[in-house]
Simulated assay, not measured.
Amino acid sequence: MILIVDDKPENIFSLEVTLQSKGFKTDAALSGEEALKKSLKNDYALIILDVQMPEMDGFEVAETLTGINKTKDIPIIFLTAVNKEKKFIAKGYASGGIDYIAKPVDPDILLLKVKTFYRLYEQTSTLQKMQKDLQKEVTQRKLAQEQLKLKFEEVNSILESLPQIAFTLDGKGTIEFVNQEWLKYSPNIASCPVIHPDDQGVLDTWSLHQELFEPFEKEIRLKKLHANSYRYHLLKMTPVFKQNNEIKWVGTLTDIDERKQLEKKKDEFLSVASHELKTPLTSIKAFSQIALRAMQDINEHKAYAYISKVKEQSEKLQSLVEDLLDISTVAS
């Protein structure tokens, strides 16, 4: 919208007719004070300002507008029927005007100037809006990065407090953070712990999961610094997706060697129990069957009933032992 400022209503009317005929929206002010109030309240793309006005002339209005942050970038065209000398023209430009036109005004020339300044104002406004949006986006990105940084610092603090080995990797697999437990297996952050020769294939398997951004879990044997033996660890790797689509990996290595030893002892026990329990039960069952066949002619005798009971109970006990061993094997 264009603001027309003139103390004479007929001049305002003439300009409004000219501008509105070309599709421009206009507003009017009959004094400098009214122009200032409207400029603070409304948004204008251009101000056409008469120089010769009572109380507050056009130069004073322009100087005030250019000193206000909201209105300082509004282009101002001065119109004058009296002050045509060079010194007044210079004063007009010095007070913030971008053009100085003497009356009577050629409508065609005025329209060309208005279109040019209007277009420049729109382009400037668009650029300023883009700049503000860009600044806002940069601020939001910085804030998001700062928040993400704090979150990862919090994660690192949590990882540092864990009793197992903990570490983080970037998207390429480069180590970024390790806790103190790591340094019990490796001399520094850049070196990986010593892996058992038979477990080296785990790294190749992990590479496939890394490409697919899939969680990874595998048992692996590691050797502590200055130790001669390897200990079983459970390796877990979890991808963490950042806001800018970057990937980080959080990994843990939990010592499960004692559990593995207990599982080994349990397997040994099951093997022994399978033999030690089944063998006598099989013998009892077999001998009771032989005794029953031998006593077929006296099956009315009490002894026959007792031996039948022994055979029946031994079969039940053998079934229970086999079920127990089967359950233990599945659980292991």
Rank of each mutant, 00 (worst) to 15 (best):
A190Y: 07
A190F: 00
S191M: 11
P193V: 10
P193S: 11
V194F: 13
I195G: 02
I195E: 05
I195P: 04
H196P: 06
D198S: 12
D199A: 01
D199S: 02
Q200T: 10
Q200M: 11
G201T: 03
G201R: 05
V202A: 12
V202E: 03
L203A: 13
D204I: 04
D204G: 10
T205L: 14
T205C: 01
T205H: 11
T205Q: 15
S207H: 02
L208S: 05
L208Y: 09
H209S: 15
Q210W: 11
Q210E: 03
E211G: 02
E211P: 03
L212F: 11
L212S: 13
F213T: 09
F213Y: 14
F213L: 12
E214S: 13
E214A: 13
P215K: 08
E219R: 02
I220D: 04
R221N: 05
L225I: 13
L225P: 01
H226M: 02
H226I: 00
A227P: 01
N228M: 09
S229L: 10
Y230L: 06
Y230G: 07
R231V: 00
R231F: 13
R231K: 14
Y232M: 06
Y232S: 11
Y232P: 00
H233K: 05
H233G: 07
L235G: 04
L235D: 00
K236N: 13
M237N: 10
M237V: 13
T238E: 15
V240K: 08
F241A: 11
N245V: 00
E246W: 01
I247D: 02
K248L: 09
K248V: 03
W249D: 07
V250A: 06
G251I: 09
L253G: 04
L253Y: 09
L253N: 04
T254R: 03
T254W: 01
D255C: 05
